[in-house]
Each structure stands twice: as structure tokens, then as C-alpha cells.
Amino acid sequence: MQGKIKFVIIGSGNIANTYVSAIQNIANAEIVAAVSKRLKAPTKQPNLPAFASLNEVTTDFDAVIICTPPGLHHETAIEAAKLGKHIFCEKPLDVTIAAMDNMINICKENQVLLGVAYQRRYSSDNPVVKALIENNTLGRIFSVDLSVKNYRDDSYYNAAPYRGTKAIDGGGPFVQQASHYIDLYYWYFGKPFKIVSKLGTFVHDIEVEDHGVAICTHDNGMISTITASTATKPGFPAKMEIYTSKGYLILENDVITHWDMEGLENPTTQSQDGNTHTGAATATVEDTTNHEFLINDFVDAILTGKAPIISGESAKNASEIILEIYNSSF
């Protein structure tokens, strides 16, 4: 396959506009149509032909980008796979084990690629920390505190009827706002063997949590906490504190802001300039650099036949941790 990869974007909401902006910066990719039940194209590319379903699309295309609510991801993925189209899916992969397994299996059966947008893995200092952990440079890691304390006002949840629901949104801030960082946690440390959690709804009139804490225990003895919230005004930078036998480091918005490791210099080359999207108080994403990185990789995977850098199987792990946090609380 040569030339531009042609995408159909599924959904027309806020995150769809992020992908429109990203693909406008990618030479060998373009969006050729939109699918929306409202027959509406994303506002940043309003002249796209819009269709009510993927089966109705008359424009030739190679792949889809799924930007629908999480609990609906599997529906479009199955439809696209049966058409022989590759699939790039917004996080999380889906909200149930059965749906995720179905997505992964049907993509394999139809020999199409499934990539997932967990772009935080490759943001700022996050890959640097990954390499330090893999090389055992930091010593024994015995404690991690992950905090994703966002704030969303009522207008966020009132903007769409599915928000704050279990069936379609999948839950509250653990599966929504904290999903990227729980994926990062998995990428660094693997899956815990035991999770104990406590969730509550304190500020919003929704059927799922708006604040909660999980305690995770790993096979190597590491004990960690994960806090996720949309109730903590005014919203705070996502923070991961890592404590080891050599000292500690703190990541804030993917940048090492504190470092005290015996015999090791701080490896960061980053600075927080105030323009980094934190997600703390808004869902809007202006900087599409990391999305462009993953889409470029996905386009290359289509053209060369290699696997996407973040596959469906890899992305499923974050959802499994989140589901265990929910199951533990219930």
C-alpha cells in the first residue's frame, strides 16, 4: 500500500477535533469522511461528508479513528474489522473484558490492525523514566503514589447524556481522566496482584464515582496508591511520586519536577511552560504532538505491516486494572 492513508473519523465531539488537528500535520494521512448519528462532521473539518453508519460510507478509505463514548468502541471496531479496515481507537479500549476481547479477536480474524491512543507513554520525560526502570537504574522501587485530581463542573456531565454513566462512560474519573496515567502505571510497573479501593460520589449528581482511592500491591512487594477525581477544585497537575532504595522522583504533567537519586543526575531536558495540557480543569486538548506521534506510527504500521506501537492487547491491561479497582470497591 502506497500514498496517503485515508481515515474515516467516527464521532464529531471534542476528541474528534483533536484528531482532525493532528492529521492536518501528517503528510501521508487524511480524513476523508465522518460517521455521526447526527450526520455532523467535526467542527475543525466541517466540509467532510458525513454518514449515519460506517456501512453507508461511499468514499474509499483504509482505516477508522474511533472517537465515540468508550462503551460503544467495540460496536464500530467490529463493523470496521468486518469491512477489512484498520482501527485506531481513542482510550480506553472499551469498558468490559468481553467487549475488549471481542475487538482484539475480530481484528485478528480479519487481519486488520488495532491501535490505541495511550500517547502519554511517549510524552516528555515518561520514556526516560521507563528506560530507567527497565534498566534497574533507580534501585528497588517500593512505593508509588499516582494522583490524578481533576475538576469537572456540572456542565461537563450535562453536555452529553452518557457522561457519568456506567454502561457507556464506563465509570467516573478512573476510566476517564485517569486512564492515561493508569496505562502509564502499567507500562512502568506491570499489573498489581491485589487491589483494594474505596470510591464515592461527592460533588456531582452522577451514577458513578467522582472521587476514589485504590491501594495496589505487586508481586515484588511494591505498595502504591492511585487517586482519581473530578471533584477536587480547581484541578491539579497529574502527579506520580516514585520512591526507591536510591531516593525519589516526582513526575508532574509528564515532566520530572523533583529528583533526588543517589549517584544519579536528573535526566530531564523538559520544562513546564504553562502550555502543557494537564486535563486538570478541562477536557480540551490543544497540543496534538503526542497524537501525531501515535498516528504516524499507525500509518507506518499500515504501510509496512508491522504492529502498532500500542496494540489492543497492550491497552487492555490499563482497562483491566481500572475494572479491578471498580470491582474491589463494589
Rank of each mutant, 00 (worst) to 15 (best):
M1D: 09
Q2T: 14
I5H: 00
F7Q: 03
G13Y: 06
I15Q: 08
N17F: 05
S21T: 13
A22L: 04
A22G: 00
Q24G: 04
Q24I: 02
Q24E: 12
N25W: 07
I26Q: 03
A27M: 11
A27R: 14
N28V: 08
A29R: 07
E30Y: 09
V32D: 02
R38L: 13
P42I: 01
T43C: 10
K44E: 11
K44H: 12
Q45G: 03
L48F: 08
L48D: 06
P49Q: 07
P49W: 07
P49I: 06
P49V: 08
F51T: 05
A52T: 13
E56C: 03
T58S: 11
T59C: 08
A63L: 03
A63R: 03
V64P: 00
I66S: 13
H74N: 15
H74Q: 14
T76W: 15
T76V: 14
E79Y: 05
E79W: 02
A80E: 07
K82S: 10
K85Y: 02
H86Y: 03
I87G: 00
C89H: 00
E90Y: 03
K91C: 01
K91E: 01
A98S: 13
A99N: 15
M100D: 08
N102Q: 15
I104N: 09
K108F: 03
N110Q: 09
N110C: 01
N110F: 02
Q111K: 15
A117Y: 11
Q119Y: 13
D125A: 09
V128A: 04
V128K: 11
V129R: 01
L132I: 09
I133A: 07
E134H: 14
N136Y: 10
T137W: 09
G139I: 06
F142G: 10
V144I: 10
L146F: 01
R152N: 04
Y156T: 02
A160K: 14
R163D: 09
K166Y: 13
D169N: 14
G170C: 11
G171L: 09
G171W: 05
G172H: 05
P173Y: 06
F174Y: 09
Q176P: 06
H180G: 05
Y186D: 13
G190A: 01
P192Q: 00
P192W: 02
F193T: 12
S197L: 00
L199R: 02
L199E: 00
I206Y: 02
V208P: 02
G212T: 00
I215M: 10
I215A: 11
N220P: 08
S224A: 15
T225F: 05
I226D: 03
A231S: 15
A231R: 10
P234S: 06
G235K: 05
F236C: 09
K239S: 12
T244S: 13
L249P: 01
E252I: 02
N253R: 06
I256T: 03
G263H: 08
N266Y: 08
T269N: 14
Q270G: 02
G274N: 06
T276K: 15
H277M: 12
H277S: 13
A280E: 07
E286N: 14
T288D: 04
T289M: 07
T289Q: 10
H291L: 10
E292Q: 15
A301G: 10
K306T: 12
P308M: 05
I310V: 14
G312S: 08
A315M: 07
N317Y: 13
S319E: 10
E320F: 11
Y326K: 01
N327I: 05
